[in-house]
């Protein structure tokens, strides 16, 4: 029960962080930074995205608190749970970019929270000799979007952008370890550093904002070309 609360707490905290980050960034942006035309210069922009993500690989998972794992079959267990297969999720992210002149963008930092969608097959795994079951539908994904570099072009009311950036995916949630005929819930997490491309086609709504269709192939995350994110992005700023 306590672990369930912990997981919900993490999800709420990350969700709160995403919303807070976007609000803080939006409020902190000076109005004169809204240089939303090719004529304007360097400035910041905020991006809020709702997206569907699908991957064909997940990172191996670690026991988050091995000292708290109490199994009737053994005293201590620690180690890694190998995984196989992908993870489909839907979520939101907030992101901040620096725009250099009209043509270049430097993604700075972003944070996203993704929840599983659709059916996932259980994964038969093992940890430290014990049989384990990874249950992807009980995991959440937290995206830490790092720095990168991008280019863009503007055609009247339309923007086309492409960038490449570093990322870190953290999967966290609950899996199960077998102890005889019982299956015991345990907290797990997995971390996958990676690199992503982001390609957006945008339409300006007004001088300060535009809406974009964004496709983000995961160039590397656990394995090459491991998945893709497709989302609708709202951009304020340049």
């Amino acid at each position: 029960m306590r672990r369930g609360h912990t997981r919900r707490g993490i999800a709420r905290l990350v969700g709160l962080l995403v919303v807070s980050l976007s609000l803080v960034i939006a409020l902190a942006l000076p109005r004169d930074a809204h240089a939303a035309s090719p004529d304007r210069g360097t400035g910041m922009e905020v991006r809020l995205q709702a997206a569907f993500a699908a991957t064909r690989a997940m990172p191996d998972l670690q026991l988050s608190a091995p000292e708290e794992v109490l199994l009737p079959s053994r005293e201590a267990v620690a180690g890694t749970l190998p995984t196989v297969g992908g993870f489909r999720s839907f979520g939101a992210s907030a992101d901040m970019n620096l725009v250099l002149r009209p043509r270049f963008t430097i993604p700075i930092f972003g944070l996203g929270l993704y929840l599983p969608v659709g059916d996932h097959a259980p994964i038969r795994s093992a940890v430290d000799g014990s049989i384990a079951t990874v249950q992807p539908w009980r995991l959440i994904g937290i995206d830490f979007l790092g720095p990168g570099f991008g280019v863009r072009t503007v055609e009247r009311r339309y923007f086309f952008e492409a960038s490449v950036r570093f990322s870190i995916l953290v999967l966290t949630g609950t899996s199960q370890i077998a102890a005889g005929r019982e299956a015991i819930d345990v907290q797990v997490h997995g971390i996958a550093p990676g690199a992503r491309a982001e390609m957006s086609a945008c339409r300006r709504l007004d001088p300060e904002s535009r809406v974009c269709l964004t496709v983000s192939p995961r160039l590397f995350e656990v394995r090459p070309l491991s998945g893709m994110t497709v989302g609708l992005t709202w951009v304020w700023g340049n």
């Binding site: 709702a50 569907f52 749970l81 190998p82 995984t83 196989v84 297969g85 839907f90 979520g91 939101a92 929840l115 599983p116 969608v117 659709g118 059916d119 996932h120 097959a121 259980p122 994964i123 038969r124 795994s125 093992a126 079951t133 990874v134 249950q135 539908w137 809406v211 609708l232």
Partner: peptide
Amino acid sequence: LGAIASALALVLVACKGEGGEPIDAVG
């Protein structure tokens, strides 16, 4: 647009669960 996105998100996130035959990461 926000309302549509939120509704879509709720529907998608609610539609999750266990499905399909187990797949092996070991064995």
